[in-house]
Design a protein around this nucleic acid. Structure first.
Lengths: 233, 233
DNA sequence: GACAGCTCTCGTACAGTGTGCGAATGGATT
DNA sequence: AATCCATTCGCACACTGTACGAGAGCTGTC
């Protein structure tokens, strides 16, 4: 009657202890190297095995299946996100630091954007961030369920802003395009919409990098303001 | 010197015209049926071919590669999103309707959440939504680049809220789990964090469906308030 | 020393994937 | 009747995740 169990690594008891030789950490580290270098599609068990000078299937002693490996790798990414103790800096600053940090971590590991949309964040690192965020919003003055709602809102914004940015980056094979030609193609795509065309004339396509930065700031300020407005009293 | 071209279906001239027999539309329709029934991993060219009682590789006459098919399918999803003409209902209502609509469309086609994070939305349907959204925010009083920033902020929130929801849904094979058991497992995962534990005691896990609805509303109101606050004057 | 029982490695095999290629079909035009 | 061209598709290739089961090396007990 239990049906298909919910099968996350994090909701099981961990394996006893790592013996000498290979270990989960070593495997995860190697996997991340491959992922950073070749993206999510570039990671195959055989390639990972080779990198560890081991057989492809040896990995399966440490890890139940590839998805489990990805869960481990994913939580490692959460570990890279930095967030001050909210009590030290106040909630708005803590929120901003977290937001910028999350964005830059995801941009540094573009493959993690795909994982975001694939598996819940239940690893210890993710949970630690979630905990700090809860404390942050309690400090701000939220209570009860609103603490969670505020947290969801903030992370939703960050995800939603960053994920498509990654998609866009990877769609144009990283810098190997001619801006003018690009602009022309997009212009043709929106030719039937005067409002969209008008937008193309703004000079903003010159430096997409900082444009996105500015857009991110704008949205972040809006979200924080909006949350603040929902505080009691 | 152009390097790897940016290769979206939408930025190329379309194929002449569909002859009788198979057509792109028919293929896309069949693909969506498979996707809805079996998810993103369930869609293979052979299966799609079979559904159309055609050979697997026949599809490649209409479509350059699988990714291109996914682009087509993706834009079809955008076509399902409904948004009133902003001039008719005012910007806040238009924004709310769009937000609810996007959320429900993505939840209805969970596989589209993965596509969101993989390819930019450049199809005609996506562009039409983008255009309406621009007009909506101009109507609200935004000008210049702020129109875009506001748009990014809103869609970011919707994506970011919905994508993890889909991930969560699919992680627990759709309803086949025991809530009590689930709660116990999660509780164990957060056992070191008093704030997180306290959260588990709230009764909110009883009906995740409406909980998420409420959370979505909370965040949406916050975002809209925050945007409103950035209006000039 | 001999045997048993672990932990750990890995070769092989299987069913599946996307898709390049080139041969075949069939209808329309000359 | 011959030519052309749109369209179909079988085959093959390289690649994927991983089940299975045989082995290797170590440890502890008689």
């Amino acid at each position: 009657m239990t049906g298909k169990q919910f099968a996350s690594v994090w909701l099981r008891e961990p394996r006893k202890a790592a013996s000498p030789g290979r270990s989960r950490d070593e495997i995860v580290r190697a996997a991340i190297e491959i992922l950073d270098a070749e993206g999510l599609d570039g990671l195959s068990m055989r390639k990972l095995g080779a990198k560890l000078s081991a057989g492809a299937t040896s990995i399966y002693w440490y890890v139940a299946h590839k998805d489990e490996l990805l869960e481990l790798v994913y939580d490692q990414v959460w570990g890279e996100m930095s967030m001050p103790e909210p009590e030290d800096v106040g909630w708005r600053d803590a929120a901003s630091v977290l937001a910028y940090s999350m964005r830059s971590v995801i941009l540094r590991h573009p493959w993690s954007a795909d994982l975001l949309g694939r598996m819940p964040a239940l690893g210890p690192n993710a949970i630690q961030v979630a905990d700090r965020m809860r404390r942050m919003f309690k400090l701000a003055g939220f209570a009860g369920m609103d603490v969670d709602y505020a947290g969801s809102t903030l992370t939703a914004y960050i995800y939603g802003m960053t994920i498509p940015e990654v998609a866009w980056n990877s769609a144009m094979g990283e810098h190997e395009y001619d801006p003018a030609e690009m602009k022309e193609m997009v212009t043709r795509a929106v030719r039937d919409y005067p409002d969209m065309l008008e937008r193309m004339d703004m000079t903003a396509y010159d430096d997409p990098q900082t444009l996105r930065q500015v857009a991110f700031d704008f949205g972040l300020m809006s979200v924080l303001d909006g949350l603040e407005r929902r505080l009691p009293t």
